[in-house]
C-alpha cells in the first residue's frame, strides 16, 4: 500500500469521527473546536492531493475566521445545548 493512501486513510477516519462528534456534542464550544479539526484535516487532504490553492483558502477561512464567528455567536446566545 502506498504511503499517501495510508496517511489519507488515517486522516479520513479521524475526520469522520470528528464530524460525528461535532454534530453530537451538547457543549457548543467543543463542537466549534471539532469543526476546526475537520477543517484542518480537509486542508491537509487537499494538500496531499496537490491542490495548494484550495488548501490555502480552506485553511484561511476555516481555521481562524469561521471559528471566531462561531464563538461570537455562542457568546451572544448560550453555550450548552438543551
Amino acid at each position: 500500500m502506498d504511503l499517501f493512501t495510508l496517511v489519507s486513510l488515517i486522516l479520513i477516519i479521524a475526520m469522520l469521527i470528528a464530524a460525528v462528534v461535532a454534530a453530537e456534542l451538547k457543549d457548543l464550544l467543543s463542537a466549534a473546536v471539532a469543526l476546526g479539526v475537520v477543517s484542518l484535516i480537509v486542508s491537509i487532504l487537499f494538500y496531499i492531493l496537490q491542490a495548494p490553492d484550495v488548501a490555502i483558502t480552506e485553511a484561511s477561512i476555516g481555521a481562524g475566521l469561521s471559528m471566531a464567528v462561531l464563538i461570537f455567536a455562542i457568546k451572544h446566545t448560550e453555550r450548552w445545548e438543551k
Binding site: 495548494p52 490553492d53 488548501a55 490555502i56 483558502t57 485553511a59 484561511s60 477561512i61 481562524g64 475566521l65 471566531a68
Partner: peptide, 17 residues
Amino acid sequence: TPGGGFPGGAVIASAFL
C-alpha cells in the same frame, strides 16, 4: 505562488481580528 486575493484578504482581516 499558491494563494491570491481571497486568502490574502482573509489573512489581513485576521490580523485585525
